[in-house]
Amino acid sequence: MTVQPLANGFCFGEGVRWFEGLVWFSDMLGEAVHTVTLQGEMSTLPLPGHAPSGLGFRPDGTLLIVSTERRQILAYDGESVSLVADLGDLVPAGLGDMVVDGDGRAYVGAQAREGGVIVRLDRNNQATVVAEDLSFPNGMVITPDGTFVVAESTGRRLSAYSVDDAGALHHRRVFAAGLDGPPDGLAVDADGGVWTAMTLSHRFDRITAEGVTDRIEMGDRTAIACALGGPEDRALFLLSATDAYPDRLVGTTLSTLDVIGVDIPAP
C-alpha cells in the first residue's frame, strides 16, 4: 500500500493517537487538539495559551494533554478542560510526549538536550521523576511484554526500561543506537516492533532488537509522530511537517496527517 492523505491545514502536529474511532493529535503551534475521522472530517478543541504536545487516554476515557511550555498536564472529559498537574518544580525543561499505561499512569518527558527526565503521573495525580539523564526524551511506548521504550532525540537512540508493578522504571538499556537521525514519535505493534519517526531522515522506520525491518519514505517531509489504529488496528497514521523545528513553522498550515496499511496490528 502507499501513503494516503487524510487531513491537512494545521501548523505542527504532535502526539497522534487512535481512540474510539477517531484519530486525535495536537497542533502544538495552533494551540489546539484535533480529531479526524477516517473520512478526513476534522473537529477542533481550542486550547488558547497552551502549546499541546503529548496525548494519552486513561481507562475512563479522560484525555490527558501535555502543555509544553507551561509544564502542565491538562484533562479533557469531553466537555471541559481542567488542570490536573503542574510539573514545573520537577522538570528541567519544557514537556513533550506522553504515554499512558493500562492502569492510567501517565509518563511524560521533559525535553532537556542533556539531563532530560521522565515524570510518572499516577491516577491520584501525584507526580514522581522515574528516569533521569536522558538526551531529549521524546516519543514513548510500552511494548506488549511490558518494556518501556523512549526515543532520545539528541542521543539518536531508543532506550528501554523494565517497569515494576508500582510503575517505576528500572534496568536502563539500549533498544537501538546509532540511528540515522533524531527519533521523535513512536508507535508499537503486537509483535513489539517500534515504529519510529526519523525526523531528519524523512521516513518512518519499524525497529526491533534485530534492527530495521520496514521503512516508509516521506519524500522531503519531516517525520514527526505516528500511531497504529483503524478498524482492524492495521492503519499506521503518520504526522509530518515541512521542518523539524517548530519555531520555523509559526503561522503556516503545512503539516499533514497521512495513513498507510501495515501487516502487524496494534497490540
Score class of each variant (00 low, 15 high):
Y76S: 10
S43Q: 15
R248A: 15
R215P: 02
H171D: 15
Y76D: 08
G56P: 07
L169P: 12
L90G: 12
G21K: 00
E20N: 15
M198C: 03
F136C: 10
A187T: 00
R113V: 08
R173I: 09
V149W: 11
G21V: 00
G185Q: 12
R70C: 01
D258N: 08
Q111Y: 05
Y107M: 11
G104R: 00
P231K: 08
G94V: 03
D243N: 15
T222A: 11
R215G: 02
E132Q: 14
T256K: 01
D97C: 01
G40M: 08
P267S: 11
A32N: 07
V188D: 06
A131H: 02
D220C: 06
E114K: 06
G230T: 00
V150L: 01
T222W: 13
R70E: 05
G146P: 11
R58F: 05
G96W: 04
I207H: 05
N8V: 05
E210Y: 04
D233G: 01
T37Y: 03
L83P: 11
T2L: 02
L74V: 10
D220S: 14
V129M: 07
G181E: 10
A106Y: 05
L158N: 12
D89R: 13
G104M: 01
I73D: 06
A160T: 00
F10H: 04
E69L: 14
P137S: 03
D243R: 01
V99L: 06
A244M: 12
G192I: 11
E14G: 00
A197P: 03
E41S: 13
T62A: 11
P183G: 13
H170F: 09
V188G: 06
H50G: 02
I73C: 08
D191L: 08
G102M: 08
R173G: 15
P92W: 08
Q126W: 01
S153A: 14
R120A: 14
L239C: 12
G230I: 01
T213Q: 13
G251K: 10
G96Q: 14
G104H: 00
V100N: 12
P48H: 06
I207Q: 04
S26K: 00
V99R: 12
V150A: 06
P183C: 11
L179S: 00
D189S: 10
D86W: 12
P183S: 09
A244Y: 14
D77H: 07
L249M: 10
L179D: 00
R120Y: 06
P137W: 05
I118W: 00
